[in-house]
Amino acid sequence: MSLQTESQSQEPLDLIRFQLDETVLVKLRGAREMKGKLQGYDSHCNMVISEAEEYIYEVNGNSEPVVKKTEMVFVRGDSVILISPIN
């Protein structure tokens, strides 16, 4: 069982660091997603997102999500499930 120390030069939060000033999709608890430009973050995944669009999905249904737009928003890290870059 070898420890791959060399490939551990990168850590997961680096993926987020490379997305600063880029558009990200953040999946949140409670069937919500937040899309916007990542202005800042910390190790708890607290984030500041500008030009944000929040998508609120119906719990069980395929109807269109409710969209809420915010100029600048703080997202508390504990509700974050995943963060993904958008091309």
């Binding site: 997961p12 993926l15 890290g77 974050v80 963060i83």
Partner: peptide, 11 residues
């Protein structure tokens, strides 16, 4: 398909 992702540990 969602490509590259970060998953927060608590989930």
């Amino acid at each position: 398909e969602i490509g590259e992702i970060f998953i927060r540990c608590n989930n």
